[in-house]
């Protein structure tokens, strides 16, 4: 029956539109495709204060995203925060072992991420290594307190 054909077509298009919409939301809106490549290597770093850093936050170098934070735990030995991250394996063995990791904020009040800066040492970081040189997150309250106590002087 002709009516049925149009009906079926209409519903089919409707459902397809829904699926495509979901794909759009996945790729363009939530950056799903810009996910992790398959080959990664793991590094970790300890921070005195991680501030608002969360798992899945990005790890960048010179602003370019090279990985993401996978885990944040309290280190029972040092009582600071141990952050584990996974980086694109094409940087495995390319980062010097005096690379620094800092927790930066995007924009003024945005979310926090890790920025890496390479140093000049001859030895390189490999899978499972620890980054020793870290800079903790700027916590607004501590900053204000510092400012106020400086003013008082």
């Amino acid at each position: 029956m002709k009516r049925n054909k149009f009906l079926e077509l209409g519903v089919g298009i409707f459902m397809l539109a829904g699926i495509l919409g979901l794909v759009f939301l996945g790729l363009r809106v939530s950056g799903l495709g810009v996910g992790m490549p398959n080959d990664t290597f793991t590094l970790s770093a300890n921070f005195a204060n991680i501030g608002g850093l969360r798992p899945q936050a990005k790890v960048t170098m010179s602003g370019v995203r090279i990985g993401e934070v996978t885990d944040i735990q309290l280190d029972p030995k040092w009582f600071d925060a141990k952050v584990t991250m996974q980086l694109d394996s094409k940087y495995d063995g390319k980062l010097s072992n005096d690379t620094t990791a800092a927790i930066l904020t995007s924009g003024l009040l945005g979310e926090q991420y890790i920025g890496l800066t390479v140093g000049g040492a001859p030895d390189m970081l490999r899978d499972g290594d620890v980054i020793h040189d870290t800079q903790q997150a700027l916590v607004l309250e501590e900053l204000i307190q510092k400012f106020v106590s400086n003013m008082a002087k």
């Binding site: 363009r28 809106v29 939530s30 950056g31 990005k58 995007s106």
Partner: peptide, 10 residues
């Protein structure tokens, strides 16, 4: 893209 998480949000 940075702030919308597919699983948590979408």
């Amino acid at each position: 893209q940075d702030s919308v998480n597919f699983v948590d949000d979408v």
